[in-house]
Simulated assay, not measured.
Amino acid sequence: MIDYFGRNFRVKMSSDSAVPFPKGPLIVGFGGAAVDFLAVVAGFPKPDDNIRSTNMKVQGGGNAGNALTCAARLGLKPRIISKIANDLQGRAVLEELEADGVDTSFFVVSKGGCSPFTYVIIDSHTRTRTCIFTAGYPPMIPDDLSRDSLLSALDGAKLVYFDGRMHETALFIAREAFCKNISILVDAERPREGLDELLTMTDYLVCSERFPQAWTKAASIPRALISILLKLPNLKFVIATLGGNGSIMLEQCVDDGRQIEEKDVDSSLESLARQKEDGIARPTCIASSVTKFRAEGIGSVCGRLYVGTAEKIPPSKLIDTTGAGDAFVGAVMYAICNNFSPEKMLPFASCVAAAKCKALGARSGLPYRGDPCLASF
């Protein structure tokens, strides 16, 4: 590679080693792939402060890049569609993804412009991180991807994943996947332009803790999940990730006319949460029976409610939460493609996300399928 000063050298970021191309089910992902510049500091700086980092790393990033790297390490066969520039950072993005077995054949590489990158500041005292993102230029548009190329990318895919970015191109890809009856999973961090239409074609939704209420204006997360399923009847399930507090999942079930008990969804969640066993370090899942869940003023849906717990990570081992949500999503994709039950999927995804949090950066700690931490799955 050539650096900013024209010198030739080979860039190696954080992938530990090249791995054989995965042989599992094919998935296709569209979204962000970037470079992360990570710096660990003793405390987040105040205005006009001059501080020093205690650790640093340059590593691949971006929601789609991270989630698909996770899926590759677990054994899926990921193919990514995204855009970079022909610069040092863009070439490094490709190199790291390829080393992890992600197919980058459908990347669009612009001759000019710049590749996306993020400054990530990790506060070692509060165990929090702050991200400063710089978007790539020029942005990806539908004309960057011919229909023939898209059809080739989707050929044989079992699942298509979107991180909600670059909405015009995302919708172009999603419409084709929808017409081909390929399942769609969306990772929703926050409401974005074009997301509403994308969600109408979605089978599986994984969202941040803030998204359900921000999107529905409901008074609680459980009520918001009811609203989401009512607005999006094609959804099979919706998961809200809660960081160190685990996750909540509402799975839609068929109402076959049998006498099904009706319950308030907020009360039902409280009842399930009380069943969690204190002191259990490993992630678990508590599930309801098939119930008609009611949200006053919103409506009701027939489904099952799940409470997933997070792994209890000792403070000494909690290094960095950057990309934990992407790791969770990558594990959910693996679980879907391998027909895991929700009771198995949520603890599995939590274990994968916890492993990531024990290393600096979004990818260093991502486990491989044979990792001892996943042996019970």
Rank of each mutant, 00 (worst) to 15 (best):
S316R: 11
E262Q: 10
R369P: 07
P22V: 01
F44N: 00
F117T: 09
R165C: 10
P367I: 05
S267D: 15
C302I: 01
T134I: 13
D320F: 05
R175A: 08
D16Q: 15
G279L: 02
I221W: 06
L230P: 01
A331Y: 01
V352W: 07
F211C: 01
D100C: 15
K276G: 05
D255T: 03
D3N: 15
A324F: 04
A214M: 15
S289V: 07
E343R: 14
K356M: 08
R369C: 05
G323H: 06
S220G: 11
A273F: 08
L360Q: 08
G113P: 07
L269V: 06
E262D: 05
R192L: 14
S288A: 02
R210F: 06
A219H: 13
T130S: 15
L171Y: 04
L269R: 07
P314R: 12
I122V: 15
G308D: 00
F237L: 04
D103M: 05
L26K: 15
C373L: 14
K317D: 13
K358M: 13
T69V: 14
F211Q: 01
A34G: 09
L225I: 06
S115V: 05
D36A: 03
D49Y: 11
S124N: 12
P78W: 03
G279E: 03
N245C: 11
C351Q: 10
K317L: 12
L199D: 06
G61H: 10
A39K: 11
P22T: 02
I27Q: 00
F377C: 09
F106L: 12
S364D: 13
F162P: 03
D163E: 03
C302K: 01
P139A: 02
T291W: 02
L269K: 06
A153H: 06
K317C: 09
C253R: 14
M166Y: 14
G31V: 03
I121L: 14
A157K: 00
S267K: 15
P47F: 10
A331Q: 00
R190Q: 12
E193H: 12
D148I: 10
I80E: 11
S267V: 15
D326M: 05
L235N: 04
M166F: 12
G6Y: 02
S17H: 15
D148Y: 11
L94D: 05
G164W: 06
A39I: 15
S110F: 06
A18M: 13
L199F: 05
V108G: 06
P233W: 00
K312D: 10
N66T: 14
K23C: 05
L250G: 02
V206F: 00
E176R: 08
A224Y: 02
A39R: 15
I122G: 09
A331E: 00
E343Y: 07
L318M: 05
P45L: 12
C131P: 08
R190N: 09
A324Q: 02
C373T: 12
C207R: 04
A135D: 12
V28A: 00
H125V: 13
G325H: 04
G32S: 13
F178H: 10
Q213T: 15
S149A: 13
A85E: 04
D49S: 13
K263Q: 10
V238G: 00
P78M: 04
T216E: 07
V120H: 01
T200K: 11
F117S: 12
L97H: 03
M1F: 10
C285R: 07
A174N: 04
A324C: 08
D187P: 04
S208V: 02
G65T: 07
E251Q: 10
I226E: 02
A39E: 12
N86P: 08
T54L: 14
I336M: 03
L171H: 02
